[in-house]
Every structure is written in structure tokens, then in C-alpha cells.
Design a protein around this nucleic acid. Sequence first.
RNA 1: GCCGGAGUAGCUCAGUGGUAGAGCAGUUGAUUCGUAAUCAUCAGGUCGGGAGUUCAAAUCUCCCCUCCGGCUCCA
Length: 635
Amino acid sequence: MAHVKIQNRGYQTPEPKAGMLIGDVVPVELKKSVIAATVDGRPIDLSEKVPERGEIAFITIDSPEGIEILRHSTSHIMAEAVQSMFPDVKVTIGPAIENGFYYDFDTPRPFEPEDLEKIEKRMGEIIKQNHPFVKKILPIQEAVEYFKGKGETYKIELLSGIQDETVSLYTQGSFTDLCRGPHISSSGLIKAFKLTSIAGAYWRGDEKNKMLQRVYGTAFPDKESLQQHLTLLEEAKRRDHRKLGRELDLFQFNDDAGAGLPIYHPKGTMLRMIIEDFMKAEHLRRGYDIVMGPVILKQELWERSGHFDNYRENMYFTEVEGQRYGIKPMNCLAHMLIYKSRLRSYRDLPLRYFELGTVHRHEKSGVLHGLLRARAFTQDDAHIICTPEQLIDEIVGVMDFVAYTMEVFGFPYSMELSTRPEKSIGSDEDWERATEALKFALERQKQEYAVNEGDGAFYGPKIDFKLRDAIGRQWQCATIQCDFTLPERFDLTYIDSTGEKKRPVMLHRVILGSMDRFLGILIEHYAGAFPVGFAPFQAVVLTITDDHIPFGQDVLERLGSAGLRVRADFRNEKLGLKVREAQVEKIPYTLIIGKSEVTEGTVTPRMLNGKNLDPMKMDEFIEHIKNESSVFWRG
RNA sequence: GCCGGAGUAGCUCAGUGGUAGAGCAGUUGAUUCGUAAUCAUCAGGUCGGGAGUUCAAAUCUCCCCUCCGGCUCCA
């Protein structure tokens, strides 16, 4: 046993001897929290024998790996509970996922919400019995026979895809599952779990396959962390932009208008306008030209671009006087036509066309989700047309733009490179070149990034940027997509320094992505309490009695003409009510006008945290707002 | 599109086959008030839409629309 090393992190570990199990060498201090181990990084059960050689490390229940194992084991317990309650249910797969686990079942009768409670209760009973998880290794053929006997056809299908000679089965209580492991040693270790929802899910994620019933749940090392997780879910509900959008009177979706088509109310429009104005100014500053294209373009143009073949099922079409038109799902076509409107020299390049372009995409009905997934939305879209030599610098320029914008809005983000998908156009060489360019730019900037194989757009590879919001959720916004195909299809050319006709390359890119979607993210990120910079109203003037209205009127006019977004509440109501309503509306500053303010000629700003600033002159308040508004100030 | 759940007043919700309800919001009136809800008054509904069963449907059945949670897809 001289070759076994135990990573003990300062704990006293028993000397490994022949015949000992991994569980036997766990330091006494860790007995309660260790649920599995690794040998040379390979996960392994505590019930395995200590190996001849290798380095053993322990996985505790509160580590990320430990929690994953705990959840995976809990999914087995759930499958046991389900099968004991509904014997004609076939089991399929049940992995741990981010924040929980699920198990997919093929059941003749769909589960109902009430079933969740019953399953939970049964799971509680099973856990109380504290059955050990027992691993058994057997030849594949024996495993096939075993599951055949049980009628578990999905397991047989899974086995047919496994190349190894042997597989492992785990048994706890009355339930045996095909599983790689590892698992917790005994079901009694599950201290806190909850089943959260039921959903349909296709077998192996393919919509051609049968739809199974998926039960979602989660498990935690202790009750407190489970409660913390449930509180976070509540918090997400509280921030839901669909709810806040209605409460704050920002926008609506209307059955009569159509699903997925946002309608912006005055305050929502103001919010968008402020952000759009900022984006326009920033694009001009960075050498973009602002352009505008029509919403519908002839179908033949979409055929030429490849959208008709590759994107048709997502497009709306219309016919006027026998002429077919496609409603744009992307903004590139008009931009191509602008480029082609005259002969271009290499001296003109790069050309950067920016459009706040409103597009329509026919998204499947089940995927709509407020502003985050709509059928009409406006992109902060640009197409950069440049020489192949300029490509890398242009990509870096966009990356810099994204970095700046994310900083302005206060979002951290990460990056992903997506490569060629199955359904795509263009030559292998072009794809290779484009992918290399993106990779090179990322590496030149020394940026960390993940790779998503096969996840590119149909016309080219892309870099996606994912931002992280206040409660840790990730959202995709910015994207840079390389395109060698559209310049080809539209025969874009420029004259280079030798007088020769050359083919330019093109980048599609967005920074915020969809303005609508970004707005939804902002609403959830700030829980509706927007920073002064882009809050629809920055201040509301409240009078205490009618005597204070004339001065209140002065304040309103003075601040308004200075460029502040301010409104008044001069109603004959008690101050408490007016303060409450301003608070509920989440207006950053409430300016209360009473006797002393009228006499002193000041305003006393109350903030959303309930605290007051010292009374100040109006000019001081204007300056205060100006400073706080940062890049959004346009006064 | 698929699976499950839901749709009752502007909003949040109660109402399981027998006369549609509450709170908030709204109206009108009184109150002139110093930091999260003053009191009273009146009004408000093709119970998502259509068809069917029944003496009788918000309630039962079928079709459609929309929303919610997922799957697939995606900004």
C-alpha cells in the first residue's frame, strides 16, 4: 500500500491496509460530511476497495461535486418512489443538473401536481429506511437480460449505445438503475430535498421521439441551503419583468394584437428611448453610420440571401399586387443594398452600418416569454464590411464596444465561440477562415472563452457574450458573427490598391442584442428600481398642502427645463399616501415641498431607501442628478 | 409545435350544476394633512371565445385563443 497517497488536508487519516474500503480511510473529522471520493481525479464510491496505487481525495457533501452526487442519488430515490407507486412506469434517465435534478419517466398516465406531494412523501419514507446504495458490476449482456426481465426498454436502448464490456448497476431498496455513479453510501444522507415541477420532455431531447414526463426536484446538504434556494426562486418571481412591466406601466402584451408582440406604454418607451439614444451616440462615436431599412423586402431577395432556404419557417410573408414580400427577421439585406449603391474603394473600408432595426420572427408558440422571447423586437444591429486584413481589428473593436457597454450597465459577462452547425451554407475553407479569425481575436485579447461546437449561425461562426445579472442568472446579449457568404451571394466588391476587384468580408454584430430583451433583463436585474440615469421619471414633486403648489410648480418647471424627467403630484392627499405611491412606482427621488422648502427655496430629496438628503437648492439637485446619470445625461 | 397547469371586475383572488363576490385601483363628496395606504359614496362582469349536454353551466364535454412551467428552438 506504499503507493497510495491520501490527500488529507491536515486531517489524521488511517493508514491504508489491504482489504480496506475507501470509506475506512476517511479522516474521523470528515466522517459525517464525506460522501464519495476520487482516485487520481476519477469519482469513486466510498464502498470501493482502496486501490493498489493512486491518490485519494475526498468529496464532501457541501462541495460542488458532493452536491451533484447528492442530487443524482436523490433522483434515484425519486425513481424508486415513482416506481413503487406506479408500477407500470418505465424509467429512463435522471441526472443532476444546475440547481437540482430530474428524472424522465414513460408513464401511461401523466403526473399531476398532486402527485408531486405524494411522491415527495414516499421519498421521505424511503429515505427514513436508510437503504445503502449498492454497486454491482456485470457484463453488458447480463445487464440487458436483467432490464429485459423488468421490461425497462429504455435502459436496454441505453445499453445498446455503450461500448464497454461491463456496466455498473446501483441498487437501493427495491430499485436498481443502470448508472455510472458514484452515489452517496446510503439514502439516509439526504437531509433536504423538494420536488419542484412536472414537465414534458422528449426522449433523448429529440422532438421526433416520444414525450416523457419529467419530474424536477432539488436537494441540498441541509435544510437552510434548500430554504435559501427556494427564497432565490421567490426573488426571481418578484423580479419577473412581465409582472413588473404591468405594475410599473411599462408595456403590455395583448391577445387581440397577437402573441409575442410587445406594446410599449409611455414609461416603457421613455426607458427604451434613453438607452437607444445612448447607443446611437456611442455608435457614432465609434465610427458607425446610422442607417434605416424597410420592414418588408421582396421574397426574391430573401431567396438570394439564403434566408428563404434556411430561415423560412421563422419568417412572416405577405403578398401585395401579386408580389411576394418577406417581413425581415434580420436587418442585413438593406445594409447590403446600401453597400452596393455605389462602387467601393479599399479606402472606404471598413464601413459600419448601424440600425435599430425592428424584426419579426415567427417563434413557436410555446417558447414565447415576455420581452425575453418575443415575435417582434428591435436589434441594435450593425454590419461591418471590411477587407480580410481588417477583420481581426474589427472583431477586437466590437469586443471592446461590448466590454464598455457592459461596464456602463454594470454586468459581468463571459464569452463563447460557436462553430459550424449542420444546417449551414458556405465552403469549408470560408468557415475555417472565419472561425480562425474569431479565435485569433479572442486570443490576441487574452480573453477566456468556451467553445460551443456546431452552435454557429447558418452563415457563419460567432462569438456570443453572456452577461450575469444581480441574482446570478446568465443571459445572452451581444454576438459577433463572421460571414463570408453574404458578400459572395450579393456579389459585394471593392477596388483594392492595385485596381483589382476584391471580395470584402462581413461581420454581423449586436451589443445589447434585442432592445426589448435587454429591457426585460434590466427590469429583472434592478427589480424595476432603475438607476437615475435611465429611470423613466427621475423625480416626483410632492406638495404637502395646496398652499405649496405655486412653489411646486416652479420646481417642476425649473427641473424640467434643465432636462430632468420629473412629474408632479399636487393632489389633495395625505403626504404618506403620495410618498407610498412614488415608492411603489420606484421613482428614484421624491421631492417633498412643505412650508420650510417654500421659505428657503429648497427641495428635500427622499430616496427609495427611505432616507432624505439634506435640503438643497434646485441647481444643486440638478447637478446631483447630472452626476448620478453618468453617460445617460443629455440635459 | 409537443407535454402539464391555468384564464372570474383594471390588478390580486374567492366562488364544484340553482340570483356572480371581496380587497386594492377607479368615481363622487368631505378632509388641507411633513416621509409606505384619511373617511364615506357610487359604479364596475358577453365568468377568454365558440359549440354541445342539461329544466338550469363560471362550474360538465369538445374545439379554438391566450398565459404559466418545461421540452425542442433561440436575440
